[in-house]
Design a protein around this nucleic acid. Sequence first.
DNA 1: AATTATTAATAGTGTTACTATTATATTTGC
DNA 2: GCAAATATAATAGTAACACTATTAATAATT
Lengths: 228, 228
Amino acid sequence: MERLLESIKITVNDKLYIKDPESSDLGKRIIEHSILMINDMGFENFTFRKLGAEIKSNESSVYRYFESKQKLLLYLTSWYWGWLEYRLVFATNGIPDPEPKLAKAIEIVTQTTVKDWVFAHINEELLNKIVINEFSKSYLTKEVDTKNKEGYFSIYKRLITRISEMIKAVDNHYGYPLSLASTILEGSLHQHFLKEHFSSLTDCHKDEQPTKYFTDLVFNRLNNQPNV
Amino acid sequence: MERLLESIKITVNDKLYIKDPESSDLGKRIIEHSILMINDMGFENFTFRKLGAEIKSNESSVYRYFESKQKLLLYLTSWYWGWLEYRLVFATNGIPDPEPKLAKAIEIVTQTTVKDWVFAHINEELLNKIVINEFSKSYLTKEVDTKNKEGYFSIYKRLITRISEMIKAVDNHYGYPLSLASTILEGSLHQHFLKEHFSSLTDCHKDEQPTKYFTDLVFNRLNNQPNV
DNA sequence: AATTATTAATAGTGTTACTATTATATTTGC
DNA sequence: GCAAATATAATAGTAACACTATTAATAATT
């Protein structure tokens, strides 16, 4: 995969940044260290001032790239979903049969990310943790509808649509392909969170178990047609 | 139900408040109006200062009842889960067969709340909306493990345990009763949120559809034993 | 060498969560 | 009915935060 991706750039909605962080060294340091710091201290305790100090730059310089903390988070999570979408399409494209195709898709989106380091300044493993802990906060706000209209969630939405299409390909009589797709994505983040902090509320205690749980759940439903 | 509940008090962890808001008129107004205001403006924009102004009292008086905004949110959501647990136990206790019992449980926890007004100062319908929009924020923080140790999520956890027990009663060979129970609860909040803000990501467009979706999903899995 | 773009430094604004202190009501015990 | 205890209100203040404005220094381009 490394070879292939060298020429690939994950593109996110360009309204999410003022200046493309990929376009400069400072920009890349902003991305790299915001991932490290948000993962360390959590989004609430993370500030542009602290980030500036960490990268030996200045708060105001960070504001040249991102107009707010919220937009930086949306940039990071969008990037993550874009990267996941890329891996999903790449891994499933060659599979002709709907069942193994969906199975592969579930595997990709529910497993925790292994260290890839395809993009030098982006630690995908930590970014995955950030998505588990912080993504919900990016839409659980009063501004969600405007943000949505501005297209800040479009990659995420496209990803869910893709999964729902694969579900329909397995069973086009099933009545809830979109709900099931969104349950797989969100539910998998949630199971990973429970695994870390509420282990008494989940049967998933190892990284690969959410994949097994959702694969089992989805295929049992879809092979069993007593629809609505 | 009204008659019965007149003498019932939903009790939450008493470390969540400094002074019991149920013990005074001011306390009840704090609860009543914090529900209205958080629902209106969202948790981020809600402040004790604004609340004080609204109830013609003072910011510092609110701090006599709750030591922080976060604890007030935890109080409200705990109360909600306690109330839901009560309704769950009440509605399922008399059902001997595991299947209809679980079906009733899923119905209770996945449906949006109808106006009950059993507790004069608590609008359960709005509280349900608050839980949908804000509950995740109460655990998606760096302090989650300490909060958990202090017992601030115990009612929520007990509720999930109860549901998982009902799942086991239907199929005690199923390998993921806890994960399934937590998926039903969290997933249902999520589907209700999507219904309001991302209708292209769900098949649930009416209030009762999450119930149907999860009932279908759960029973199809449990009647079908190809376990792990 | 001059122009331009980028980055850094400094200072400031309004708001927030929360605390401390004092003053004023209200309730309670006798 | 009145003093003591308690609850509430008012005021002021702190440190931190998100974000802005302005100017200074540096680097890249022409």
